[in-house]
Write a protein that binds this DNA or RNA. Sequence first.
DNA 1: AATGAATGAGCTTTCATTCAT
DNA 2: CATGAATGAAAGCTCATTCAT
Lengths: 190, 190, 190, 190
Amino acid sequence: MARKKKLDEQELFLATEKLLVKKGYDGFHFKALSEELEVARSTIYEYYANKDDLITSYMMKRMDEIMEECFALSVIDSPVAQLKQLLEIFITRSHTHQVIEMIPLLKQAKSLKIQQQVDDLTHYHQKMYEFINEIIVKAQKEGLIRKNIEPPVIASLLFNAIQIVNVMNVPPKEWSEKLFSIIFYGIHNG
Amino acid sequence: MARKKKLDEQELFLATEKLLVKKGYDGFHFKALSEELEVARSTIYEYYANKDDLITSYMMKRMDEIMEECFALSVIDSPVAQLKQLLEIFITRSHTHQVIEMIPLLKQAKSLKIQQQVDDLTHYHQKMYEFINEIIVKAQKEGLIRKNIEPPVIASLLFNAIQIVNVMNVPPKEWSEKLFSIIFYGIHNG
Amino acid sequence: MARKKKLDEQELFLATEKLLVKKGYDGFHFKALSEELEVARSTIYEYYANKDDLITSYMMKRMDEIMEECFALSVIDSPVAQLKQLLEIFITRSHTHQVIEMIPLLKQAKSLKIQQQVDDLTHYHQKMYEFINEIIVKAQKEGLIRKNIEPPVIASLLFNAIQIVNVMNVPPKEWSEKLFSIIFYGIHNG
Amino acid sequence: MARKKKLDEQELFLATEKLLVKKGYDGFHFKALSEELEVARSTIYEYYANKDDLITSYMMKRMDEIMEECFALSVIDSPVAQLKQLLEIFITRSHTHQVIEMIPLLKQAKSLKIQQQVDDLTHYHQKMYEFINEIIVKAQKEGLIRKNIEPPVIASLLFNAIQIVNVMNVPPKEWSEKLFSIIFYGIHNG
DNA sequence: AATGAATGAGCTTTCATTCAT
DNA sequence: CATGAATGAAAGCTCATTCAT
């Protein structure tokens, strides 16, 4: 092994996530990232050709992780329980979710390589959406969820709930259950 | 004879909104703006000292408009009906809402003048939140909304609903009613 | 008119030529150019999108000038006299000629705009070559030049003569006549 | 057991030549070179202190080779025949010739060591020129070549002929004879 | 009022070069 | 010997901003 490795992918992706969430896609740059990691800016270029390369690689990694967790769900019986669990997964990984929503901003990618990665991400993203839709449809078929709401609207509602700030710092499991119950039963009294 | 007045505030704010929504806070430039408006970049500086000055001024204007609409509501009786109407206002002005969410990104303002404007905006924003919270609290007191949900959570839920894409292009009034009913009664069946 | 214009195309192209000849295509950069012209580096970007844009624009300008001079020749009778004159033109503009030879290095242009300009240049270049070839062929037909030498070889020989250093600083007209006579009659004695 | 010796000077110089000819002095990088050779960039530094060190070393090597071939000529009688042979040598080694022409670009060398090498090269280069000049002068004295042409002009003419593209891919020996005859007898008819 | 011109700050990116293993 | 890792210097480029007319 050569000089002690300073750049650890784990750490790099964490810092990337942090900055992306804090500054947004356009506000994210290698300058801040390198300062955060205490390495030279050029060092990052040894691993990623440019900003988009890093961002897409990071997204891919997180997407993989999230998908894995999602697919581990399938065994559980009730689709409603599945949705609740999905919400929990996304709430726990809310940062990731926020970043994934930035995919559309990548659309104008320059190099072919990046374009390919963006396409992969988009495809992956759709797959995830479909996976959730299927559960919703199943829930509707089983008569657990109202049939007069389009599944994407329900999916959106759930995803947006992720953004709701957990002021009291309720533990994730509880918090997601609470949110789910609000969405499930509504806010009305009685 | 002076050159024809090319810069109309109306038009300027519209273009600003459009670009802010499309490109985000960091992706917004005077360059693009001046091209959109077909004026010289430097012309914009005749009216606004800098980028943040324009953005905060624009936000202030929209905030005023939105607040005015909100306060026009008070006469109506049921707080639930009021919430429904609020949702409609925000859905109609969803662009504005998106931009207002960018306020935190302005926090690092350099000049005092901007800092002052940002503070005003933040204050205004809070006031709006309080206004909504009051309606929610009122609804809870009147036994129309569950008491075991913190008002900010409900407010958040409503605000986030704005983001849900109206794929079928249902007219705003109908769409907001539909969304409100989903949030109010929940997605469960029966 | 706004601030006094510092950047004059004439001057800019002259400096560009000078640096291109001295440093070569890869050694040419806006840093040196801006220093030469005593303007900020960014000022050059106000007029040319990038290095290649400037270089191709400059080449185009010179190419136009050279072509104009070439076409002004046609009236003269003997094709040999024409070739002699051509040599004089190119010797007088030897810097330009050197730069034009860099066209192939531009081939990997990034943007479409540049690609287009490069194509135009290449096309223009070929046209010039054909023009010269025609004169050579005519001279061969008229029995003034040996028929067993391919016209491009003759053209090449003439073009290369441009590079021969005029140590004694003989005036261009004389110098080109001298070179032409050497090429025409050869170096042998008798 | 040491790792297999990957860097062979032969191979290294060949790749250097190839890249120098293709990309020019400023376009030549260790990055490309190391990729071409499939070794780590840093490995090259084990042999050469820096870019210029490699380039000058390479030039020196080729210069030696060329000089050796030139000096092997001396026995042959007619100076004209010698010139013809010289042309053949340089045409066969046209790549090398191209690279040698880059010596002036090295002039701004930083380190003393490189400065020394550049001086050596320049000196060597001059010696070669003188050698050729002597042959030309001898040919003039013997009445084989016109006396009213300065020897450096003739040398230049010959050297430049190297650049003439051999479109038909005539074998080197034939090609150099053809070129020499053109230069010797001129292009005129009769 | 409007604008064309110029500029500096700051980010992006590429490479030569160093160094510890 | 060879290399992977890290870095700094320098070029590329974009934009906010200033200024004279």
